[in-house]
């Protein structure tokens, strides 16, 4: 929807008139003084305010520390994968048992040879 030019001009004229009337109303002296004091205080704050800008190495260091922590956490996580280690232990134990059985069998054959 477009606003007709004459209405647009009329609205603009009205707005300018409102601005003129509002600008013509002065602030009372007390309020003006309080506002000026507030303004001085704000400017003083801006003057003394020192914004902290982190050095460039901070993000890089943060990234490195994060990677180390993540890596450590993942490795600790690996320690919890016990089933594989348990299987290995059982397998090794089983192999050990078979070896013992073989040794016992060999010893038995030796006994038979000596007896014979």
């Amino acid at each position: 929807m477009t606003v007709p030019d004459d209405r647009q001009a009329s609205d603009d004229g009205f707005a300018q008139e409102v601005k003129r009337v509002l600008d013509g109303v002065p602030l009372d002296a007390e309020t003006a003084a309080r506002l000026a004091a507030v303004r001085r205080h704000a400017v003083e704050r801006a003057r003394t305010y020192v914004s902290y800008v982190p050095p460039r190495w901070v993000p890089v260091s943060a990234m490195a520390v994060t990677l180390v922590v993540l890596g450590t956490a993942l490795r600790v996580g690996d320690d919890h994968t016990l089933p594989v280690l348990e299987d290995d232990a059982l397998f090794a134990a089983a192999q050990e048992r078979e070896l013992l059985e073989e040794l016992e069998l060999l010893a038995y054959f030796d006994e038979l040879d000596h007896a014979g």
């Binding site: 507030v38 303004r39 205080h41 704000a42 400017v43 704050r45 801006a46 305010y49």
Partner: peptide, 8 residues
Amino acid sequence: QDSMMTLA
């Protein structure tokens, strides 16, 4: 006042 202080 609050607005000025925040801006500053």
